[in-house]
C-alpha cells in the first residue's frame, strides 16, 4: 500500500458542535492504516487545544487529554496558525500539546502538499 499524505483540518471550537471530537476519533482510527497523517488547527479550531478544559459541569466527556495520545499513534505533525491564535489572545504556551506554530501562508503550503484533506 502506498503511503498517502492526509491532513485533518480543524476549524471548530470543541463541545459546541461534534466536529472536534469526530475529527479526533477519525484520526485515531485512521492511524491504524499507517498513513502520513497531520492535523491543522485554524480559526476556532485552535480552541480545541486550549489547556485546562474541565467539562464536568456541562456533563459532556472532555477530550483535551486525548490529544496527548496522538504521539503514541505516530501523529506528530500538529500545525496551528499564528493569526488564529493571536486573534483569540492565545499563544503556544496556552496549548495542551507541543505544536508547530505556522503562518496562514505556510499552512496553505502544507495543505497544498497533501493527497487528501479532510475538513472538520
Amino acid at each position: 500500500m502506498t503511503i498517502k499524505k492526509f491532513m485533518f483540518v480543524n476549524r471548530k471550537a470543541p463541545y459546541g458542535t461534534i466536529y472536534a471530537l469526530e475529527s479526533l476519533e477519525v484520526v485515531l482510527i485512521g492511524a491504524a492504516f499507517e498513513q502520513d497523517v497531520s492535523m491543522a488547527f485554524t480559526d476556532d479550531g485552535v480552541y480545541q487545544l486550549k489547556k485546562g478544559q474541565n467539562t464536568k459541569a456541562i456533563g459532556i466527556k472532555g477530550f483535551e487529554k486525548t490529544y496527548g495520545a496522538l504521539e503514541d499513534y505516530d501523529v506528530t505533525k500538529l500545525y496551528v496558525d499564528q493569526e488564529s491564535l493571536t486573534a483569540r489572545g492565545l499563544t503556544a504556551e496556552d496549548l495542551c500539546v507541543p505544536v508547530e506554530v505556522v503562518s496562514r501562508a505556510e499552512l496553505g503550503k502544507h495543505m497544498e502538499a497533501q493527497d487528501v484533506v479532510l475538513s472538520f
Binding site: A31, A32, T66, G68, A69, D72
Partner: peptide, 13 residues
C-alpha cells in the same frame, strides 16, 4: 491519562 482505550498497535508499543 488519555481518556481513550488504545488501539492494539499502540497498546503493544
Amino acid at each position: 491519562e488519555f481518556q481513550i482505550a488504545p488501539a492494539v498497535r499502540v497498546l503493544t508499543k
